[in-house]
Design a protein around this nucleic acid. Sequence first.
DNA 1: GAGAAATGATACATAGATGTCTCAGACGAT
DNA 2: ATCGTCTGAGACATCTATGTATCATTTCTC
Lengths: 190, 190
Amino acid sequence: MRSALNPSPRPTARDAIIGAAIRLWSRNPGATFSEVALHAGVGRATLHRHFRTRDDLLTVLAEICIEETNEAVAAAIDQSASASRQLQRMFEAVIPLGDRYSFLYRAEIGDEHTTARYRRQLDRVGTLVGELKAEGGVAADVPTAWVVAQIDQLIWTAWNEVASGRVAAADAANLATRTLLHGLGKEEQP
Amino acid sequence: MRSALNPSPRPTARDAIIGAAIRLWSRNPGATFSEVALHAGVGRATLHRHFRTRDDLLTVLAEICIEETNEAVAAAIDQSASASRQLQRMFEAVIPLGDRYSFLYRAEIGDEHTTARYRRQLDRVGTLVGELKAEGGVAADVPTAWVVAQIDQLIWTAWNEVASGRVAAADAANLATRTLLHGLGKEEQP
DNA sequence: GAGAAATGATACATAGATGTCTCAGACGAT
DNA sequence: ATCGTCTGAGACATCTATGTATCATTTCTC
């Protein structure tokens, strides 16, 4: 029964679709709506009932990704810690999510609300970079935009290398932090 | 007249197509074949005469990109220079090309010959990384694959930031080298 | 068990891109 | 001027994904 307290009728189908879409599009971003339905074990009509268009589904996935990322970061970050420590923990929290959401990097999300949320996430990273600069972890003469772009790309690259087996998952966050703050040159690591 | 010495009959159409495709797909990677023809000032039929399928054109563009990149790097690199100097010059040579070929990062090239050439390019970067390690510019404990991935991404990110106006073109190569070798931390720059 | 809701299968309509083909005309070289 | 080549325009055939609608059946709730 559908009620105000339980607005989602049968979550299984919807969840199955979302799961299948993530798994499928991670491997093949061009996978068709029918394929998604097939892998979800659901008729194509049912898929359209839950997500009217392909863009709808994509947007929902992006929203989920943003929420999950926000939660992971919020849970990982300790406001009282140093900015560089927060950076490290952010990498630790976010890189494992690449497994599920990396395909969104390439996807084109039209929905304005969603892209705005994404921009806001980047803005928050910008704030962290500001703290890093204030703290001395990042040089003041480097454009903040550059640092933010690097962080974004490091997350993507890190996941990518982990996924292809070239870098151990456990090392990824450390490598990312090290790359950003100290570079890959030979020097004593703190 | 077509002869053995002058195998390309009327280069204008072909060149116009290539130019239009690069310009168009740089802004909109999903642009249609008809749009390419339109922007090239050429009938769609003519486009098909020069490049039978969409993939054909894409592959040719990728080949051109690889060749141009190779040439630019070859011209810029001085084998007798230090590896880190070569890295810097490679950045200087390649980042400006992003303007024209960045869309290929996202394109899916099916042609094996072309992807093999691309892999070979990355291998050459791997060799450079090896020299960097031997020279002490890059720490030996960092996976070479990670460094190569970083270099690849730095090129893309650098062009991206330049294109969006957030970073000055003149600074990009320096920033990239600095990011890779020394990180963005506050420390004396050599 | 009865009724409501959700589902699967299927058919249908459509839109868009792709690739092929033809034919008349423009252009270049000789 | 003429011949051969290249071109533009358009028609044509496909093909594929998408989105909609219908209906019998299943499944859940009460």
